[in-house]
Write a protein that binds this DNA or RNA. Sequence first.
DNA 1: CTCTTTGCAAATTTTTTGCATGCGC
DNA 2: GCGCATGCAAAAAATTTGCAAAGAG
Lengths: 152, 152
Amino acid sequence: MQTQSITISPDELSQRLAFFEEECRRRGLRVTEQRREIFKTVASSHSHPSAEDVFAVVREKMANVSLDTVYRTLASLADMELILRVGTAYKERFDGDLRPHAHFICSKCGEVYDIFYDKKNMMLPLREAFSFGDVRQICLQYKGSCKKCMPH
Amino acid sequence: MQTQSITISPDELSQRLAFFEEECRRRGLRVTEQRREIFKTVASSHSHPSAEDVFAVVREKMANVSLDTVYRTLASLADMELILRVGTAYKERFDGDLRPHAHFICSKCGEVYDIFYDKKNMMLPLREAFSFGDVRQICLQYKGSCKKCMPH
DNA sequence: CTCTTTGCAAATTTTTTGCATGCGC
DNA sequence: GCGCATGCAAAAAATTTGCAAAGAG
């Protein structure tokens, strides 16, 4: 079941654009061409683009956007929770504890907290997550080698 | 229930060190002082350290390790699955799709695949994850503001 | 008209690489 | 001794910042 290529309907896109503009106004952020284009690009992409990727696409429509505007805009869109960050949003961090556990990651300061759960309770340990702060997003990642990169 | 400060027992640490050495030999990697020290640092830390953090700690014991050795070693330890990466392991990526869904992230090429699940089946969609490749790690993150950073 | 946002350039931060030397096996 | 691993330095990649000018409200 490949879902990568599903495209957003024009209807849904304009609905999301409207919400984007509403959110901008509500927060006193100006609705600029650049912001609109960058949001549109991420909202209609299904390839989990990096800042560079977004930049390349937006560049085709707006010849003179700059990469730093893309960075700034992606950051503000993520702050507004209009798009998601895949990853920690900060530099790479490591964990030497291999017991099954979840993380609460603060979107502001980047702090990482552990949430342990035992085999008897494999339900999402959401209650405990809330004890660390205000849970705005649940992010479940499976990691390994994809078929293209297998074997090893 | 703060679990950050739990320290690994000396017993467990030496057990993990033994396994580390065994794994190195099995893969033909040499057991050097640096690798041992870096592994020990991550294995006994509960602060999800960055490469810089690990470097700072290791530096106290080995005055002349270099940062690039730390980077190289962390990468190989993560490859060996002796430690975990928190995050995507590559540059930051974004997702405009706000429907609840999980990701399969390839540890080799960094490709991100979507895994959708509906409200009727909130179980971990592990079966589908396996359709994308070889699942080696399940990573559950809750994101939001931690108490220190609240409100807003 | 005001004040945020942009583009440009430069700086900073994070991570990687080439190469000669050192050290585990 | 052979060959991988390290340290050094330098480069590359990713991200952020200062500032003058442009444009949204």
